[in-house]
Design a protein around this nucleic acid. Structure first.
Lengths: 159, 159
DNA sequence: TGCATAAAGTACGAAATCGTACTACATAAT
DNA sequence: ATTATGTAGTACGATTTCGTACTTTATGCA
């Protein structure tokens, strides 16, 4: 019943794919709503995510590179970054290597904003850990990443 | 290193939560983009998802109940359903049990639309199965569901 | 019965998302 | 050098998303 079967994919198997993707959509919805509740008014999950990305992986990145990391169209990232800049959480610098593009730099205010958000979100994260256990999450991550990599490839060009 | 530790949550553990949620957000983004490419122009993943929901779990549901299933605000569902109705894929009927609400019924055209979408999406689903294997997905689902249930509870009132 | 409170749905406005088309710069090929 | 093609970013408009406030109906309580 739960054996691997390599010969042919059944409707049942496919339904599993849809269910998982559906669940992922709902989860994205939910986690966005929960996170947004812990952010100052006017700030979106996307704002926090970008700041967190810059802190974790380093700033001095181009908008396009950030857009690709989140798999959003570059016009969307332009808009998100404009919001962050207006709030003084990032600044743009010219890209010395490429006159067409910019480099995004996080400001001290941006770093502080991110740290505060993390602090407010930590109790929630702890509750998730208490509810699921670290093992479940550990097992979740690589599988999600594999699924992401596949869909990534499936995405062809675009953006 | 990967042992369960019940005494205290570390920054590292919390980071795992954020990573998983981040991955989920990106996946939602990606799967939405891939799915949308296989739908007729003008139709969103949300449209397909609602139709699929009605076929799988039965129609004759109220808009609010559908909104809750997808964890979106009811105003969002009003808009999505309006699009489906305008396209003739659903119809509204009065709710005999409650004069405030409506019942959503899928039409034959709606069912056909859903079936065609499934048919077009099936090759993609098969590729996912080939890439990940059914076991991975099977293990993914219950964990995602547990995570969803937790965030669900965390959501308090609202909507 | 009458009234207060809650729930279902919508109108409306604001913001986010994203596709198309454009500008400016870069790279490759002659 | 010149020209053709490709890439980074943005302007713009259409659609989606969603919070607030409202209308209508239901429910609980006096």
């Amino acid at each position: 019943m739960s054996e691997t079967q390599t010969t042919q994919n059944t409707t049942h198997d496919r339904a599993l794919v849809f269910e998982v993707l559906n669940e992922i959509g709902i989860l994205a919805q939910l986690s966005g709503a929960v996170m947004e509740r812990h952010l100052p008014p006017g700030f979106q999950t996307s704002h926090f995510s970008v700041l967190n990305h810059l802190v974790r992986l380093g700033d001095e990145r181009t908008p396009l590179r950030i857009a690709r990391a989140f798999q959003v169209p570059k016009t969307t990232m332009t808009h998100t970054l404009a919001g962050l800049e207006k709030a003084g959480l990032i600044v743009f610098a010219p890209n010395p290597d490429d006159g067409r593009s910019k480099l995004v730099k996080i400001t001290e205010a941006g770093r502080a904003f991110r740290d505060e958000a993390i602090a407010k979100l930590s109790p929630e994260a702890d509750k998730v850990l208490a509810a699921l256990g670290g093992e479940d999450l550990s097992e979740l991550r690589p599988r999600l990443q594999r699924l992401r990599e596949f869909l990534d490839a499936e995405r062809d060009g675009k953006n």
